[in-house]
Amino acid sequence: MLEKPSVIRHYRWHVGTIAWLLHRITGLLLIFYLVLHIWVIHHISQGPAGFNKVMGVVQTPIFLLLEIGLLGCVLYHAFNGLRIIVIEFSKEGVEAHKQIYAAMMAVAIILFLIGGVPMFIHFLHALAG
């Protein structure tokens, strides 16, 4: 039988573990997106026809929906990243780490709503044609 080694006392999902895992996953998704983004935008060198063609493809409803997820990834990664930096650079930060996490996530959520709601409406319009 597979058993947890007894030296490992606890292997639970803490808020810190989830925050770290999400930071890692969103970071990897973002660099993957960056590669595609550089390649897509490079089409502008081909002039209006080539650029509008590729931009037409990446602005179809499915992409518009995925873009809202992208905004979520960016905002989570950015504000969790700032949390990491603040906590590393200040002594008070370590003591108040829960409050700092809550504050950063609050800002991220507000920005997500400000950007995401219009994006979603835009998506619905595109869907309706």
């Binding site: 209006p48 219009p118 835009h122």
Partner: peptide, 14 residues
């Protein structure tokens, strides 16, 4: 152009 948004074309970006 967030929060307003809109379609991105050559005419907007160039």
């Amino acid at each position: 152009n967030l929060p307003k948004g809109g379609t991105l074309t050559y005419a907007v970006v160039a």
